[in-house]
C-alpha cells in the first residue's frame, strides 16, 4: 500500500468513524447512565434502540405520520416504555430477591421479548430501509467523502451530548440523578425520590437510544437483529471506564474509528470480532478504562 492511499484511508476511516462513533457514544451513554444509578448493565439497550427504530418506521412509513409528529411520538413511547419497565418489573424483581444477578437476567428477558414482539408484528421479518430525513448528497472533508446525512447525524449527536451535559451539570433533576449514582442512601436522606429518579433515568436513557436509532437507521438496513450493535456500545463504555459519561463519549468515538480502520485496512468481515478484541485489550492494558477511577468496594 503506498503512502497516499494509506493517508486517504486514514482520513476516510477517521471521518466515517466519528460519524458512527457518535451513535455508539449515544448508546454507550444510555448504558452508562443506567449502570451508574442501578448497577445494572442493561442488556436490553440494543433492543430498546431497535424497537424505537421500528416504532418510528411504523409511524413514518406505514401511518404516513409527518416527521414533526413521528419523532416526538417515538421518543415519548421509548421514554414511557423504559420508565414503566423500571417501575413495574425491576422494582418487583428487587423486592423478590435483591440480587443484582436477577436484575440483569430481567433485562436479558426484556431484550428477548422486544425482539420477539418486533418479529411478531411482521415488520421485522424482512430487512427494511428507513427514509432519510436529510439529503444524502456527498460532502468532502479533507479527502474523505461522506454525506450530508452523516454531517447531520454527527451534529445531532453532539447536540444531544451537550444537552445531557447541561442536564447533569446545571439542573436539579440532573444533579439528583448524579447523587443517586454516587450514594443512593445519602441521596434519599436529602429528599430525593429514588423511585422517580430511577424511572427518569431509564426513560432518559431510552430516549437517547431512540435518538441513536433515528440517526443511524437511514444508513443501515433495519432488521430485528440490529440491536446487536449494542456490543459496540458495551465495548465503548468499557473503553471509557463504564461509570464515566465523558468516557462513554470518547469510547464511542474510539470504537467507531477503530471499527472503520479495521474495515478499511484489514477486512470488513473482521469487524464482528473487533468489540471483543477491544474489550480484552482495554482490560489487559488499562482495566479501569480511559476515564474510570478506582472501583469502590461495597461494604457489607
Amino acid at each position: 500500500m503506498d503512502k497516499d492511499l494509506i493517508l486517504l484511508f486514514l482520513q476516510q476511516g477517521i471521518v466515517s468513524g466519528m460519524v458512527v462513533g457518535s451513535v455508539y457514544a449515544l448508546l454507550a451513554l444510555s448504558i452508562v447512565m443506567i449502570f451508574k444509578t442501578s448497577e445494572v448493565p442493561n442488556f436490553a439497550q440494543g433492543e430498546i434502540f431497535m424497537a424505537a427504530g421500528y416504532c418510528a418506521l411504523f409511524l413514518l412509513v406505514f401511518q404516513a405520520t409527518p416527521v414533526w409528529l413521528a419523532v416526538p411520538l417515538t421518543l415519548v413511547v421509548a421514554f414511557a416504555g423504559a420508565a414503566l419497565f423500571r417501575r413495574v418489573v425491576l422494582t418487583q424483581v428487587s423486592r423478590a430477591s435483591g440480587s443484582p444477578v436477577n436484575l440483569v437476567i430481567a433485562t436479558l428477558g426484556l431484550s428477548y421479548v422486544l425482539k420477539g414482539l418486533v418479529r411478531r408484528t411482521g415488520f421485522g421479518d424482512t430487512p427494511r430501509s428507513f427514509p432519510a430525513l436529510v439529503s444524502t448528497d456527498g460532502v468532502m472533508i479533507g479527502q474523505a467523502s461522506i454525506t450530508r446525512l452523516d454531517v447531520a447525524i454527527f451534529l445531532t449527536a453532539l447536540a444531544v451530548m451537550a444537552f445531557l451535559f447541561c442536564l447533569f451539570a446545571y439542573t436539579k433533576v440532573g444533579r439528583a440523578m448524579r447523587a443517586v449514582g454516587m450514594n443512593p442512601k445519602a441521596a434519599r436522606l436529602m429528599g430525593v425520590d429514588l423511585q422517580r429518579i430511577h424511572m427518569l433515568v431509564w426513560g432518559l436513557s431510552a430516549v437517547v437510544s431512540a435518538i441513536a436509532a433515528l440517526l443511524i437507521s437511514p444508513k443501515i438496513l433495519m432488521t430485528a437483529e440490529m440491536g446487536g450493535i449494542v456490543t459496540m456500545a458495551f465495548a465503548a463504555a468499557i473503553v471509557g471506564g463504564f461509570t464515566s459519561l465523558p468516557g462513554a463519549v470518547v469510547g464511542g468515538f474510539v470504537i467507531g474509528i477503530a471499527e472503520n480502520l479495521v474495515g478499511l485496512f484489514i477486512s470488513s468481515r473482521a469487524i464482528v470480532v473487533a468489540p471483543f478484541v477491544a474489550i480484552m485489550l482495554v482490560l489487559i492494558v488499562r482495566p479501569q478504562g480511559l476515564f474510570g477511577g478506582r472501583v469502590a468496594i461495597k461494604k457489607v
Binding site: V93, S99, N102, A106, G109, L110, Y112, V113, G116, R119
Partner: peptide, 21 residues
C-alpha cells in the same frame, strides 16, 4: 418459532419477578 423468543424473554422476566428461586 415466532413465539419462542417472546416466551423465553417473558419466562425470564416473570420468574425474576415472582419466583426467583
Amino acid at each position: 418459532p415466532s413465539f419462542q423468543e417472546i416466551a423465553y424473554g417473558a419466562i425470564l422476566i416473570v420468574f425474576m419477578m415472582y419466583a426467583p428461586k
